[in-house]
Nucleic acid binder design. Structure first.
Length: 591
RNA sequence: GCGCCCGUAGCUCAGCCGGACAGAGCGUCUGCCUCCGGAGCAGAAGGUCAGAGGUUCGAAUCCUCUCGGGCGUACCA
């Protein structure tokens, strides 16, 4: 059935294209590679599809566009167009040829929507292909921030879109739980533990060890992200994490381990405790947004498997690695970069670029047809190195697509809130979800193009009212459900057979035309990886439905008409529900 | 300095592969509740598409330059 729908959807363009090619073949001086373009006119009064052939050919044929268009129309007329598909065609404006579909075509499309319901909008583009979407990928050094939220929602929705176009999709989270940041995290926890252990109000405060610790204990002042001075233990790192979650982790550790913590000479205990707590927290936050990862990929495994070393050697074998100042450099200047890039530091420790290349090599080896990375704008300069690395290693880097999204500005009461994990001046994603709910959170992150800065207006998001666009969509869905309930309650009897040709009202036709776009819209948006367009489209569907709702009653109309209208409402519900599900939003039956 | 992203209505933003008179939401103004959910509907006002050149039959869209904002430009991640 999916194939049948696909055929109906695309056949109109294909059909007209083929007819046009036929007509053009009889005209002299048409370039061999000329392809007729067909597009929906901006103004619906102009018809359903239009071609600009005549305008494009004017130069080649040295005739006016209007003349060419008239000629073409003549040829179409003598060739004879399928009346079941095309009702009207004519020359208009500067030389466009406009086509209007027959109503039969629209009813067929509508019927396809009803037949397919939960699968309506699925297409075959990616069938048999595998896609990997890597997103979030935040290291477990703190709770997810609002910035991570945009990444998470974008990645998950793009994954949904790929699934709707047939791909087998893997959602992957890449993380690093070793390295400097994690050490700093561990030492931060340790510093907070020292502070808590020195607290005279702790239950063990009178024990000799505690007293001795208290006597040794000293504080220093650091400055928080809000510019406030904070007193911390002298053992707390100067660039440590000041967030209150660190103290929470420390408190839990102190409750469990008490004074035995003082015997800990290393930081492993602290780091491990922090990692466990933070990762559990991150997963819970993603869960609240309906996001479930298929795989978590630990950077460390690339060291254990030897992949990092192998990658370095492979790059070296390709002649792109050299040593300078006791460091290993990648000759990126040979591939269009102004500087070479350090792969292994003088200390012998790789920079993050080497494992990144090894990781992407791993992705290529795993055999995905499409590899998508979702990165914040701060990574803009780093991914080209990864692509260069892959190219050197002989992999097809065109399979890798990097989606860069711009940062989120959180606006609250007209005031901008800057975010930084390190400085404890952030609004966590969890707090945001708590505040406005998961649906609003997802929708707001998705409503703007990824390449633009996103101003997240908390005041607007908090309003569960008409101002808030997410409710408009959900409301339309709930209302359709309500009509059906009402019909049942009042015992309204629908006909057994649905006669869609009953639908002739302007508002009905406008709604039909809107909803049957859905499969193409999803396919196009998936291909462009631009989920924000789906929010605009669904808004249009909800608007068209609301107009229909106000112009055309269902219950109480003659049975044949009421049945057809109810079917139209159901078709609208199908598109809203499927669209909302791609966006990861609930489709409530009541509100 | 160099690289990438952005500049469209008072505000926040859509605008497909270059097409016909530049769209939506919010805000403002005017109407509309005997009626399947008013979280709504109908309508109005509001534009030098940052600016200047160029390509084209045709430019918000493509190219060049200028101005303005953001992010990068590490032997940090």
């Amino acid at each position: 059935m999916a194939l049948a729908v696909e055929r109906v959807c695309c056949c109109m363009k294909a059909y007209l294209k083929q007819v046009l090619i036929g007509a053009l073949s009889g005209i002299e001086h048409v370039p061999d590679d000329f392809e007729p373009e067909l597009m929906p006119p901006a103004n619906p009064e102009h018809g359903d599809l239009a071609t600009n052939c005549a305008l494009k050919l004017a130069r080649h044929l040295r005739r006016s566009p209007h003349q060419i268009a008239e000629d073409l129309v003549q040829r179409l007329a003598s060739a004879g167009l399928d009346k079941d598909r095309i009702a009207v065609y004519e020359v208009a404006g500067p030389g466009f040829i406009n086509f209007r579909f027959s109503s039969r075509y629209w009813y067929l499309e509508l019927q396809a929507c009803l037949d397919e319901h939960a699968n309506y909008g699925r297409t075959q583009e990616g069938t048999g292909k595998r896609a990997l979407v890597e997103f979030v990928s935040a290291n477990p050094t703190g709770p997810l921030t609002v910035g991570h939220g945009r990444n998470a929602v974008l990645g998950d929705t793009i994954a949904n879109l790929l699934e709707w176009t047939g791909y087998d999709v893997t959602r992957e989270y890449y993380f690093n739980d070793a390295g400097r940041q994690m050490r700093v995290l561990g030492v931060s926890v340790r510093g907070r533990c020292d502070e808590l252990l020195a607290d005279a109000s702790q239950p063990f405060a009178r024990e000799p060890k505690a007293v001795a610790h208290r006597q040794r204990y000293a504080t220093k002042k650091l400055v928080s992200g809000r510019g406030q001075p904070v007193a911390v233990s002298t053992t707390f790192p100067d660039d440590g994490y000041l967030g209150s979650y660190i103290t929470d982790i420390a408190q839990a550790l102190v409750n469990e381990r008490r004074l035995s913590l003082l015997e800990e000479t290393g930081t492993e205990v602290f780091t491990a405790a922090a990692k466990l707590v933070i990762f559990t927290d991150i997963k819970a936050t993603l869960q609240r947004l309906g996001i479930r990862m298929d795989t978590y990929f630990n950077e460390h495994s690339l060291y254990e498997s030897g992949a990092v070393a192998e990658t370095l050697e492979a790059l070296r074998a390709a002649g792109f690695v050299y040593e300078k100042d006791q460091a290993q450099w990648l000759k990126t200047t040979d591939l269009g970069k102004e500087k070479d890039t350090v792969l292994v530091k003088r200390s012998g420790e790789p920079t993050y670029r080497l494992p990144d290349i090894a990781y992407h090599r791993n992705k290529c080896v795993r055999g995905y047809d499409v590899i998508i990375d979702i990165f914040g704008a701060d990574h803009i300069a780093t991914y080209p190195d990864v692509l260069r690395g892959l190219r050197i290693l002989g992999y097809d880097d065109s399979r890798v697509e990097v989606i860069i999204y711009q940062f989120v500005t959180l606006v609250c009461g007209g005031e901008e809130v800057k975010m930084s994990t390190r400085k404890a001046n952030f609004v966590t994603l969890d707090e945001l979800i708590e505040d406005v709910g998961p649906d609003v959170t997802r929708y707001f992150f998705l409503m703007r193009s990824a390449q633009r800065h996103l101003e997240f207006d908390l005041d607007l998001a908090r309003e569960a009212s008409d101002k808030n666009p997410v409710f408009y969509l959900q409301y339309a869905h709930a209302r359709i459900c309500s009509i059906l309930r009402k019909a049942k309650e009042t015992g309204f009897v629908f006909d057994r057979d649905i006669d869609l040709t009953q639908l002739t009202h302007t508002a009905e036709l406008a709604l039909i035309k809107e909803i049957v776009q859905f499969p193409q819209v999803v396919a196009r948006i998936a291909l462009a990886r631009e989920p924000h367009r789906l929010t605009s489209y669904l808004r249009g569907v909800a608007e068209a439905f609301t107009r229909f709702y106000h112009a055309c009653r269902i219950i109480g109309e003659p049975s044949l008409l009421a049945t057809a209208r109810m079917a139209l409402a159901q078709a609208t519900r199908v598109v809203l529900r499927n669209g909302l599900s791609i966006l990861g939003l609930a489709a409530p039956t009541h509100m």
